[in-house]
């Protein structure tokens, strides 16, 4: 068994109102950033899976994302393999 790292980005589906994104966008002109548009807010989940190989680890994450981490009615998601987010500025 090896450990495989993944990140799952979860976003509100297109066409679904994202009141958080709208509120942030509405505040941007105060920063002089009135040229910035299309703000959408989601969440990122990082995890590791113990598995024999990468494809079986990924299968676990896909099932988890569809059945628990995201709500398919209102959210879409993307799964990436790799290390936790590093070099975060700020």
């Amino acid at each position: 068994m090896s450990r495989f790292s993944f990140s799952i980005a979860i976003m509100p589906r297109e066409g679904i109102l994202d009141p958080q994104g709208k509120a942030v966008e509405a505040a941007l002109p105060q920063l002089g950033a009135a040229t910035v548009h299309g703000v959408r807010i989601g969440r990122r989940i990082e995890l590791t899976v113990e598995a024999d190989d990468a494809p079986s680890a990924r299968a676990v994450v896909e099932k988890l994302a569809a059945e628990f981490l995201a709500n398919p009615l209102v959210e879409r998601w993307a799964i990436d393999e790799g290390q936790p987010l590093a070099g975060v500025s700020g």
Binding site: I16, L17, P19, Q20, A23, N71, L73, V74
Partner: peptide
């Protein structure tokens, strides 16, 4: 059925 999302009023 359905989902309950953040109030649109925030």
């Amino acid at each position: 059925p359905g989902a309950l999302r953040r109030n649109t009023t925030l």
